[in-house]
């Protein structure tokens, strides 16, 4: 399968978001792919408010089965969530469980006015009632579970999508 160019998708995603920006819009990226993407979108959109980064390791629903994630990092939300207009950013939307965990975590910082979801690619396979408002690319057929689609960042910070067969 030919994967689309992540850099092009990133610019398209920024253009989808741009008309919907409000003065108080803040971006929160889900570590790690969503963080890279957020850094990019933040610059492309010329936002003045800082962006946040969220690590959902402590909110995963598979902790009971898999234990603690090997390398949890600090969540950093350097602004008030109270009444904020939040755009949650992730690289690939799959089951929706990561987005669910991130939404729960955001609510532990306050009550936002709204949360919208922006993703680079929707690969199908949802297990929860979650949809992205902004999505740069939807795969024509859902990917099988055995395949893992992920965003990678090169040393020159170029973004690429990669498909891994388990």
């Amino acid at each position: 399968m030919q994967l689309p160019d992540a850099e092009t998708l990133c610019r398209q995603l920024a253009e989808q978001i741009r008309p919907c920006l409000k003065p108080d819009t803040v971006l929160i990226g889900i570590r790690t792919g969503g963080e890279w993407l957020t850094r990019r979108l933040h610059a492309l959109l010329g936002l003045e408010l800082p962006f946040g980064v969220i690590d959902i390791s402590f909110y995963r629903d598979d902790y009971g089965a898999k234990g603690l994630h090997a390398n949890p990092q600090r969540t950093n939300i350097p602004f008030s969530i109270e009444n904020a207009h939040v755009i949650l950013v992730d690289d690939v939307l799959y089951t929706g469980r990561t987005a669910r965990a991130a939404i729960n975590e955001i609510f532990d910082f306050g009550r936002p006015a709204c949360i919208e979801l922006a993703v680079l690619v929707d690969r199908g396979g949802r297990e929860l009632p979650i949809a992205a408002r902004y999505c740069a690319h939807t795969l024509p057929e859902p990917l099988p579970d055995s395949q893992n689609l992920q965003l990678e960042q090169a040393e020159n910070s170029g973004l690429t999508l990669r498909l891994i067969h388990a």
Binding site: D55, S57, F58, Y59, Y63, L68, P72, Q73, R74, T75, N76, I81, N104, F107, D108, F109, G110
Partner: peptide
């Protein structure tokens, strides 16, 4: 692992569901 837990004390809701 302890490092990210230090941040929880600064939140509105000082609780994780683990």
């Amino acid at each position: 692992h302890a490092a990210p837990f230090t941040e929880v004390a600064e939140r509105e809701v000082k609780k994780l569901p683990l």
